[in-house]
Design a binder for these strands. Sequence first.
DNA 1: CAGGGTGCTTTCAATGGTTGGAATAGTATT
DNA 2: AATACTATTCCAACCATTGAAAGCACCCTG
Lengths: 276, 276
Amino acid sequence: MTATPETDTPPARGKRPKQGEPVIDRALSLLAVFSDRRRALTLSELARYAEMPAPTALRLIARLVAWGALERLDDGRYVVGVRLWEVASLSPRGHGVREIALPYLEDLFEVTRHHVLLAVRDNEQAVLIERLSAKDATEVAYRVGGRAPLRSTAIGLVLLAGADQQFQETILKRPPEIEPGVSEMPEGQLRRTLSDVRRTGIAMIRRSLPSRTVSVASPIFDAQGAVVASLSIVVPDGSTPPNVLGPAVRAAARAVSRNLGFQAQASADVRTHSQG
Amino acid sequence: MTATPETDTPPARGKRPKQGEPVIDRALSLLAVFSDRRRALTLSELARYAEMPAPTALRLIARLVAWGALERLDDGRYVVGVRLWEVASLSPRGHGVREIALPYLEDLFEVTRHHVLLAVRDNEQAVLIERLSAKDATEVAYRVGGRAPLRSTAIGLVLLAGADQQFQETILKRPPEIEPGVSEMPEGQLRRTLSDVRRTGIAMIRRSLPSRTVSVASPIFDAQGAVVASLSIVVPDGSTPPNVLGPAVRAAARAVSRNLGFQAQASADVRTHSQG
DNA sequence: CAGGGTGCTTTCAATGGTTGGAATAGTATT
DNA sequence: AATACTATTCCAACCATTGAAAGCACCCTG
C-alpha cells in the first residue's frame, strides 16, 4: 500500500520548513508577489510575501535579475523587468489579438471618446489586454493587465457566453458574488442573458459605481469560430443612446474577427469552443 | 542510417552534458527561445533550441504551464501565456511609461496618422514599448516588444544621447554596424549629433529602406531629469515638412515628462543620469 | 557615540530535488 | 508494415539547492 503518512499539515517541524517545493515554483511565486499595489519591493518584502527565507529569495532573485525578468532600482528595490515584457509581448492571447485589434479599437475610440476595452478569458476571470481612454474620460474601473469578473461586466459576459458549455455550467452554479454598483443576476436570468448575448452578439450592463456608466461588449472570433476575446466600450450613462453603441461595437468586433480569419456565417448560431 | 551521435556535440564527453546549470536559468532559457518568428513551439523544438534533453525540458515546461507562464495549444505546441503578460504589465519601464504616455501618443497620432513609437533602453538596444499605426500606414519597421539599434534610429539616438557618459563612450567606441537603408555615421559626427539631440531635444533620421521615411524622436524625462523613454514618429519622406514634425513630437514628449513629475528647466542643459 | 534594530549578504555542510539515459507509447511519413 | 520522429514515464545517481548562522551595513534612538 502506498502509505503516505505525510498527508496531514506539513508544518515541517524539522529543520527545513518549506523545502521540497520545486525551484521554478518558488521563482515564479516571487514574480507573483508583484501586483498593482506592489510594483517595487525590497528583498525582505519579496521573501516575506513569497514565504521563503531571505537567503533563498536572494539567490533566486539574483538569477531573475541576471536574466532580466527583474530589475534592481538604485534604492535596492526590485521591479519587473523589460525583458519579461519582451517575452510576454509574444503571447498570442496577450499582444497577439491586441496587435490585430488595436487599429479598430482606435477607430471605435474616435467615435465614443471615452473608454475602449479589450479582454481575454483566463480561467474564471477576464484579463484586460488593452484599454484606450480619453484623458478626460470618466473614472476608470480596470487597468491593463488587471482582472475583471465574468458575470458582472459586459466584457466578461461576452467571454462567458462564448466559453465551452461545461465551463459555463461551473460558473452558473457558483453563488452570485455581491458587488456594489451592479445588480447581480439570479441563475435563470443569467442563462437568458448569455443566450441573448450569443444570439445578438452584444452584451450590455449598467453600473452605478464608481460612476454611472453603460458598458457594451461584443465577441471576437478566431478562424475556428471560437470566442477568443471581447471588445467593449464604457461611456457615461446617458451620453450616447445605447442603440447606437451596440452596432458600433459589434461592427468593430466583427472587423477584428474577419482579420483573424473568421468567416461570418450566413445566419446566426455560431458554435462555441473550448479553450486551453 | 545515422550512426551514434558521437561526432555531434563535442563538449558533452561525460555522461551529463549540460548538468550544472541552475534550474531557473534553464527555465528562463526556455522562455528565451520564443521570438517573433517562433511564437508556438513543440516540446522537441523547445528542448533543441534551449539545448537540453527532452525529459528535462518537459519537466520544466510542466511547471511553467502550471503557473501560466506558458500555455499549451490543442495541437500540443506551447505559447507564451497570459499570466506572464499580466505580470509583465507591472513593469514600470514597460507598461509604466506606456500607461502615462498613451493618451499623448494618441493625440500625436491624430495629427500625423502614420506611426507613433515609444521605446526604452535595455542594455545596448531600444525596446519598443508601444506603437500606434494607421491601418494604411507605411510599412512597419519594428513591432512592439521588438528591439531597435541605438545608433541608426531616431528613437535610439535619443536614448543614447540621454544615457550616462560611460555607456555612451562604450557605444561610440564600437565599430559602426552596417545596416542597409541608413547612412551610418562616423564617430565624430555621431558625437556631434548626440550633442545636438541633447541641446534641441530632437533627433531626426532618414531611411530609404524598407521605404523612404523620416523619423523624428524626442526624449521623455522622469522627475529626476533622467531620460527614461523616447517618443518618435515615422512618416513617409516628403509627406510633412520636418520643421512641423519636430515641435509636435517635442511637445508631446514634454507633456509626458511633465506627467512623470519632470520640472522643465528655465534654460537648457539637462543633466543626464545613469540607469539601472 | 554606544546600543539596539532592521535589512542585506556571504558562508557552508547536509540533503532531497533534479537529472537524463533508457524504455515505452503515440503519431506522422514512406 | 516499416520507418522516423516526438512525447511521456521511470528511476537511481548526484549535484544544485537549501537555510541557519554569522557577518555587514545602515539606520534610528538614547
